[in-house]
Simulated scan of single mutants.
Amino acid sequence: MIKFFRRIRKTLFSENTPGGPSGKFGKYLLYAIGEIALVMIGILLALQVNNWNEQRKADKAESKALVALKNEFELNIERLEFICAERDSAQEDRRAHYDIIANDTIPIETKVRSNVKGYFGGRWAIQNTVLNGLVNSGAIDNIKNDSLKTLLTLWPNMVQRWIAAEDKYNSLKERMQDYERTRLRQGIPNRLNDKRGYTFKDSWEQYYSRKAFIVNDLEYQNFVASDIEMLYQQSIICNRIMQNYNQIITALNSEIQNRKIK
Rank of each mutant, 00 (worst) to 15 (best):
T199E: 09
Q160H: 09
L154K: 14
Q177G: 14
E229D: 14
R191I: 06
G187E: 06
T150L: 09
R183W: 06
S226C: 05
M230F: 11
Q177V: 05
V224C: 05
R161N: 14
S171L: 12
F223I: 03
I228G: 09
N216Y: 06
N190V: 13
L218H: 10
K173T: 10
I188A: 06
I163H: 08
T199K: 05
K195F: 13
T153C: 00
D217N: 15
E219N: 05
A164H: 13
L154N: 15
W204S: 13
S226K: 07
S203H: 04
Y179W: 11
Y207N: 01
Y232T: 03
W162M: 10
I163E: 12
Q234E: 15
A164C: 02
D227E: 13
F223D: 04
S235F: 04
R196F: 13
L148P: 00
A225G: 03
T182F: 08
Q233L: 12
M158Y: 06
E205G: 03
Q160N: 13
E229L: 12
W162P: 01
Q234A: 06
G197T: 02
S209Q: 15
I228S: 09
Q233F: 11
E174L: 14
W204R: 12
N222Q: 15
G187F: 05
Y232R: 06
M230I: 05
E180I: 04
D194P: 00
Y232W: 05
E229C: 03
D167W: 06
Y169L: 11
Y198S: 06
I228F: 10
D227I: 01
M176N: 01
Q206F: 04
V224H: 04
K149N: 06
Y198D: 07
R161P: 00
R210P: 03
E205I: 08
S209D: 13
F200Q: 10
W204C: 07
D167N: 15
D167C: 05
L192N: 04
